[in-house]
Nucleic acid binder design. Structure first.
Lengths: 354, 354
DNA sequence: CTTGAGTCTTGCATCGATGCAAAAGATCAC
DNA sequence: GTGATCTTTTGCATCGATGCAAGACTCAAG
């Protein structure tokens, strides 16, 4: 059975195409009688809306695009799941794109590479430099997701990175740890902020500088976490008494390296991560982590996106050729979503010792 | 700057809309001069194709849909990543849908719920009963992904489940294990096949029936694996000497339960999983697992999908009302993709003992 | 100079739905 | 009975691109 169009349904029911459209879209002024007859034809022929055609006419596609660096990274997979779920509740379909963390791809997206297929875009950028974006303003609904900020002209939803990192480190300090390694600084804004949170906490606790240690990595992956900790253990410096990993993947790698070297966790070294991916409850030992509320992120992001789509719908499309004024760009909302610390064995020490 | 249409470009370049279209789509008979002028206008105005409009006219959208039960499950996340990567190479955009393992949702997809937005559909079904699908044949390009089969009228790409399970169990047997628990039978076809592989291997090795044990679960998740093994250990039966988990998530849960109970792996109990998700290299101890070649699956699935799309393009759409004949349905290709066993510590025992 | 065979460019209809506004029909007050 | 008002239904143009086929132009051969 092939494509059934409204026209086919209309003929079958003996009404006009427009009336079928009215029934389908729930227009109120249709007589119960007609509505029933059309509905019957609809069912009988198995009509399915062509969203493309509707999208072309109405300017809305019913899609939003979600662009993340790597779909297979647990954090992004779980974020995607949350977004898909939240979008489903709103009758929106999500199109998932993978940027591979390539700033060129990310730039293309901010420049509108997806606007023709999606009503709005959620972008979880990884590497896009803020400097490049300084004078830009998107001409389509866009919400930055997660923690990477590229300037406040773009609305953004995510946890407060600095505070989250501080929370993690404060927890380690409360467990009596002092020689705390911050694992994960890299070129990203994200890494910068988490480093700052670490420094704030260390500073506030008056930990002597000699005990500070920030270990750089390239990517926030298990293998990088493993390699970095491995190297740390093989070095001749004194052993740290805690590792604060900038995300759980790094922490997982760190745990594996510690385990492989026979270092006990948490007795010798306590470990804390960020993200609280599902995996983190099953590591050896279970990992303490800062859990961003993914559902809240997804909900708020979609709400902001819908606001923008609404606004666009009212104002209509800007006239062609009307350039965006650089300079006085209004600041867009930067929403911080809740997070909480989940304490598990990897950081649970007995009474404080020092 | 708002939407730039071909018309705008045409005016700017002083040519017809059709010529712009010809340039954009690479039609050969365009003079170098004109082509250059149009290209300049294209760049200058920042033209971006409206894929919706093109899709409406040409009948192709450039999208395929990938429907998996849960995006956040590592196996599916990694599969999605592979599909997105493979599709990217072909200039195809992937739309990821989540079925939540709901057979109603899966049925809707097989009935064509996504055909109006996607040129083809890849479905990784979880629960869809084969019986329901017996007389059906899709009227659009569809490839079943992974292991769940619903009848051979649908093309399918995935590993040979029975063989993969047999491989895993044979490995355990080779390590000297005899009392091997099969963890993960549930209602799914998938579970049935892996159970069969287990039984074949046990049978071929002439293991006495008293040592066979198939433990059922509801879902193939970490927590179910944990709970099942926990229960097993709390029971009063003799301890098994190996666990064959039907997927890695279950294995991760099992490892955690064993660890929590102080059971040594692999000395007391060896563990093997299937999927070889990235996480499995970082468990305690690292998990032996059967690794399906995800890239091969993605490649073959897309190839099959493109074949179907090709065929549809040539035959044109079937005439409306032309019903599919039930009964003599031609068998579609069922492709088995390669897999290999990755042996890690969780199953590496010393010399065989018994 | 004409013809034929290309090459290059164009106008028009069309994909399937919805926006708009008018037509047709029903209802009611006077 | 008539006009006013409201409900119900309809036709037509339109979204932005491409299929089709014809028109305009170039060039070589006759």
């Amino acid at each position: 059975m092939a494509r059934v169009r409204m026209r086919d349904v209309a003929e079958h029911a003996g009404v006009s195409v427009r009336t079928v459209s009215n029934v389908v879209s729930g227009y109120p002024h249709v007589s119960p009688d007609t509505r029933a007859r059309v509905q019957r034809s609809l069912d009988e022929l198995g009509y399915r809306m062509d969203y493309l055609a509707r999208g072309l006419r109405s300017g809305r596609t019913g899609f939003i695009a979600l662009a993340v660096p790597f779909v297979a990274e647990p954090y992004f997979a779980e974020l995607a799941q949350a977004v898909i779920r939240a979008a489903g509740r709103r009758g929106i379909t999500v199109l998932v794109e993978s940027t591979a963390g390539d700033s060129e791809v990310e730039r293309r997206i901010v420049d509108g590479g997806l606007t023709n297929v999606a009503d709005g875009v959620l972008l979880s950028a990884l590497t896009l430099p803020a400097s490049d974006m300084a004078a830009k303003k998107p001409d389509f609904p866009l919400v930055m997701l997660g923690e990477h900020s590229v300037g406040d002209q773009f609305p953004r939803v995510g946890i407060d990175n600095v505070a989250a990192a501080r929370t993690a480190v404060e927890h380690l300090l409360a467990q009596g740890c002092r020689r705390i390694v911050a694992l994960g600084r890299n070129g990203s804004e994200n890494g910068r902020q988490r480093t700052e949170g670490y420094e704030q906490a260390m500073s506030a606790a008056r930990v002597r500088r000699v005990n500070w240690l920030v270990v750089p990595v390239e990517d926030w992956t298990r293998d990088q976490g493993y390699a970095a900790v491995r190297e740390l253990l093989d070095g001749d410096g004194p052993l740290p008494d805690a590792v604060f990993a900038f995300n759980d993947a790094l922490a997982v790698g760190a745990l594996r390296a510690l385990d492989a070297s026979g270092v006990r966790v948490p007795e010798d070294v306590a470990v804390v991560g960020i993200d609280a991916i599902q995996e983190s409850a099953y590591t050896h030992p279970p990992l303490t982590s800062v859990a961003p509320d993914l559902d809240a992120i997804a909900e708020r992001a979609l709400a902001l996106l819908e606001e923008q789509m609404q606004a666009l719908g009212e104002s209509g499309r800007a006239a062609p050729g009307e350039d965006v004024q650089a300079g006085a760009v209004a600041a867009a909302p930067q929403e911080a979503t809740p997070y909480r610390l989940i304490v598990r064995e990897s950081s649970r020490r007995g009474p404080v010792h020092e």
